[in-house]
Write a protein that binds this DNA or RNA. Structure first.
Lengths: 175, 175
DNA sequence: GATATATGTCAATATGGCTGACATAAATTT
DNA sequence: AAATTTATGTCAGCCATATTGACATATATC
């Protein structure tokens, strides 16, 4: 059957570069199992992936504003609200009013939140360490370079700016 | 806590055995943007990610049985049923009874289905090509090795057997 | 004082997972 | 041949997480 050469619809027309089916599928399975580690553990807490994402970024970027979180997760405040309320009610996260702007609710992980996030990140780190065991330090750099290059850099949110250490006088940065 | 050292916002201290925060986050953003390419296009067709996954694997492994698809996607037949029915009704996929076992419904993408899958894979391939542009062939091998090592190998389904070449299955293209 | 911003919340809706129960056709076992 | 198992389909309902729209409150800013 029509194999690689069909290029049925005109995209990626250059002959040497076909569709990268293998990497597409590897990414699918790798990510599925990667998040599966955390998913399984989260069940025991009655939480889902959404809680993990919120807790993770609040832990990593303490003092994150609600608006920042919305940018990073790319969800609406209504969606965030439900998940965030649970995390607040159950003591995984606390809010503090901003110093300069007291309308802001700055978010911080509690000790309880830190513990959960550490457990989840530990599971994922275990998988990463197994996967990277036979890869040289420069190979790991290559992987990092690849992952960075996969990420959209236009309109970066606050977290991406931190990750990329943007000196790029972004249009979006305020204050 | 005791989770390494969370220096405000920065990378984790790359000490011997810390949590790999940076790679965890890079994977999150890279995968988000990777699937985002397809998500956006799918909206125009009234489809979601679920349709994409079904169509992708049916295209790549023509003649896949419904049961195989359930293994690969790790969802229930009820969940699959809804999505598959739409793809059948709208002519993206066709079924044929198995030759040896006529209870089986073997799945095949139609020309219409092939076109959509090619368009979506093209978008993702474009992103991959951009990301791999400055990476050497051996670097790409390293990335492939990493992604493979991230995947659970216990209880592999038919598609994973094909990918890892551990069995007698038929992938569609080779790279 | 008026207006804009940051956040919270109520209500309704959609998608895509899930479980349980049951139906049908075809293969297999007895 | 009859009984059972298998592969698939389907009905009905539940849950988690996303959506939009409207509106409330506190605070900042003009």
């Amino acid at each position: 059957m029509a194999s690689d050469s069909k290029a049925g619809d005109g995209r990626s027309t250059a002959a040497p570069a076909g569709v990268r089916w293998e990497i597409i599928e590897l990414l699918f399975f790798a990510y599925r199992d990667f998040v599966g580690d955390a998913d399984h553990e989260l069940e025991a807490f009655g939480f889902g992936r959404a809680h993990h994402r919120v807790l993770h970024f609040v832990h990593r970027y303490p003092g994150l504003k609600v608006a920042d979180l919305l940018d990073v997760l790319r969800i609406t405040k209504q969606s965030l609200g439900r998940v965030l309320k649970q995390l607040l009610d159950e003591g995984y996260i606390v809010q503090k009013a901003g110093n300069n702007d007291r309308r802001q609710r700055l978010l911080f992980a509690t000790a309880k939140g830190e513990a959960l996030v550490a457990k989840l990140a530990g599971l994922q780190t275990d998988r990463l360490n197994r996967a990277l065991r036979d890869i040289s330090p420069s190979g790991v750099d290559t992987i990092r370079q690849f992952l960075r290059a996969m990420i959209d850099r236009d309109d970066p949110d606050k977290v991406l700016e931190a990750i990329f250490g943007t000196g790029t006088a972004t249009a979006k940065a305020k204050e």
